[in-house]
Write a protein that binds this DNA or RNA. Structure first.
Lengths: 208, 208
DNA sequence: ACAAACCTACCTTTAGGTAGGTAGTCTAGG
DNA sequence: CCTAGACTACCTACCTAAAGGTAGGTTTGT
């Protein structure tokens, strides 16, 4: 299992420090996350997860009656994981740029630097056929995501670290779009290090 | 039908000037393209297309025996459409920046400014479960796509229009990632005009 | 004993795909 | 000119596999 997923689950269940092993419910979320990154929401089935865990399909329905319940849980766990990641740092001592770099690092780790795609993109690419509850959860996440990055941009602008190129919201949009797009492209593995290359240019465009 | 799709098909069949109406085969490609933009490759079925065209599923198998054949055809038509779009312009009279703007406009039109997603992303998000032949076609397209943008960047650098921020390839990667990411985000429609906002910042970061 | 976590066994629907038939069109030969 | 064969673009009818989902029984730990 990847470091990302280990921690994703640990923070989701709150057993990070105790060292207990993951229970089935959390393992399901973990595997679903991975599969969504690789294949998108419609691209995985309960059977895929059941096979990996060596349990039966019905057991997954016990934990997540409908597939959309599992989808929502994946987004929630992802959200929780970011919160946890941010919490690890002493934000008061960091510059806005350092905070942004930490954010980029987070994204890179969740996608294994391009081995897997962006979690959100696994949903977004299929948004036209997603159940309503999932579309809402997705919108909720993206709204929060935007606010998170906007805050960092604002801070960098106030401290004079970043160059103004529009409203902070617009700059945040730009940062997120480029980062998400980079993770996407990284998947076909034609050019190694796509993500890092793009991130460097995002930062450059912000700072000089 | 969108202007994009009309022309996508027209150039694919070569009957743009004659004004003949589209034959079934081309209509199938057109609808498949649209559905892939909304739902991804796995998110549409032959039945969806059959219903829209008021024909039977088996007729689609007649034109495209396997689903992957249709997938490949969609990418080919998309490629052909860009070639055609580029051909419309008198490139000799344009600056590198104008050429790049034309490229961005192309992308915006194919996705109706965010009503639909990026065609390639409909495949990319599911690359982990795509049949081999489709992955190859996708890689072929992306390679060509990269070369296209890299050329424009090189030209802009030589003419002194663009600022150097790494190798031309790296800058092209950045441009594509940001543009694709923007189209992706535009889909959930929380912020209107995402694409234009991001494109403006790409250009700004290139030119100043 | 009771609840959580799992199971077997089943359901319905839909997917991609195939076999084989038919109605119209095109073309060649008598 | 007119028919025979071939070809195109559809059709009906079917197959198998797999999807999401459910009902209800069994195991396991406290």
């Amino acid at each position: 299992m990847t470091a990302f997923l280990k921690r994703l689950i640990a923070c989701h269940t709150g057993c990070a420090s105790t060292g207990e092993k993951l229970d089935t419910k959390d393992q399901i979320v973990q595997i679903a996350t991975e599969l969504i990154q690789q294949r998108g929401y419609q691209g995985f089935s309960y059977q895929d997860i059941a096979t990996r865990l060596d349990i039966k399909k019905a057991s997954i329905h016990y934990h997540f009656p409908k597939k959309e319940d599992l989808g929502v849980a994946v987004i929630s766990a992802y959200y929780q994981y970011i919160q946890d990641w941010i919490g690890k740092y002493d934000l008061d001592k960091m510059t806005a740029l350092e905070k942004l770099e930490q954010y980029f690092q987070f994204f890179a780790e969740t996608a294994l630097h391009g081995e897997l795609g962006c979690v959100m993109n696994g949903f977004l690419a299929e948004s036209g056929s997603l159940p309503e509850v999932l579309r809402e959860k997705l919108a909720w996440f993206e709204k929060w995501h935007m606010e998170l990055v906007t805050m960092k941009v604002k801070e960098g602008l106030e401290k004079g670290e970043f160059k103004k190129r529009g409203t902070p919201e617009e700059q945040a949009l730009f940062i997120i779009a480029a980062a998400m797009g980079a993770l996407n492209m990284a998947q076909d593995k034609q050019t190694p290090g796509v993500y890092d290359i793009v991130v460097r240019q995002i930062i450059e465009s912000l700072t000089c």
